[in-house]
């Protein structure tokens, strides 16, 4: 009984006096909460009586490489471009980079490597000539797309579909939502250009899945 009381007292200590450096302390509210390790809890008393931790013991946790996207490379169509952050315009449109040689990554979507859709848009042309995604229609399933992060790490995606939609009939609910898979979605303009609206009639949507 004395032992029990003692261990309970330690429990109390552990409950009150841990000087843990919680992993999510500095995290934004938005960050998902990963369990922190319990290593930092003080538990001096019975440790010696316990067998040494087995070298075979394993801790299984999900590890994902998640990138702050910096460059996109698609060797099949000769693309090697800078990626910048973009948001949403007041009219609800996904924004695009001003520089037509750059690709815009939607910051409110998934980051490359996370579960969900990492969505990137690029111009097909400028006012005077071709732009970064001019060759995007040439992509075919199984072509590879490499995204490089600011830390130099790379993720490779494999094209699963290349689809063309009327701009107003595009599946925005699907594109701008979650997905259990880690996917990359590239968007550009295609179809006929309508002078009156200054807009192309269609959108090209390339979907690619993260390769393991």
């Amino acid at each position: 009984m004395k032992l029990l009381t003692m261990t309970l007292a330690i429990f109390l200590l552990a409950g009150c006096a841990s000087e843990a450096g919680p992993e999510i302390a500095a995290a934004e509210v938005e960050k998902s909460t990963e369990p922190s390790k319990s290593d930092d809890a003080p538990r001096p008393a019975r440790l010696k009586e316990e067998p040494a931790p087995s070298a075979e013991g394993r801790v299984i946790k999900e590890e994902r490489t998640v990138l702050d996207a910096e460059r996109i490379r698609i060797s099949a169509i000769g693309i090697d471009a800078n990626i910048i952050d973009v948001g949403v315009l007041p009219n609800g449109q996904m924004d695009v980079p001003v520089n037509t040689d750059e690709v815009g990554w939607l910051t409110s979507g998934a980051r490359p490597g996370e579960r969900g859709n990492a969505i990137m848009a690029g111009h097909v042309d400028s006012g005077t000539g071709p732009a970064v995604f001019y060759q995007l229609p040439d992509l075919v399933p199984d072509d590879e797309i490499v995204i490089e992060g600011k830390d130099g790490k790379q993720l490779t995606y494999r094209v699963t579909s290349v689809e063309q939609y009327k701009t107003s009939g595009s599946p925005v609910d699907r594109i701008f939502d979650y997905a259990f898979s880690s996917q990359l979605i590239l968007i550009t303009c295609t179809g006929d250009f309508v002078e009156e609206t200054g807009n192309y009639e269609d959108r090209l949507v390339v979907t690619a899945e993260l390769m393991k």
């Binding site: 449109q93 848009a121 042309d125 006012g127 732009a131 701009t167 303009c189 250009f193």
Partner: peptide, 24 residues
């Protein structure tokens, strides 16, 4: 802190500079 708006419309990703090329 919780307003991460998702787009409701596709981006405008062309300015027509290559439109004269026809259906490229």
């Amino acid at each position: 802190k919780f307003e991460a708006e998702m787009p409701t419309e596709m981006p405008k990703t062309g300015m027509g500079g290559m439109a004269d090329e026809g259906d490229y």
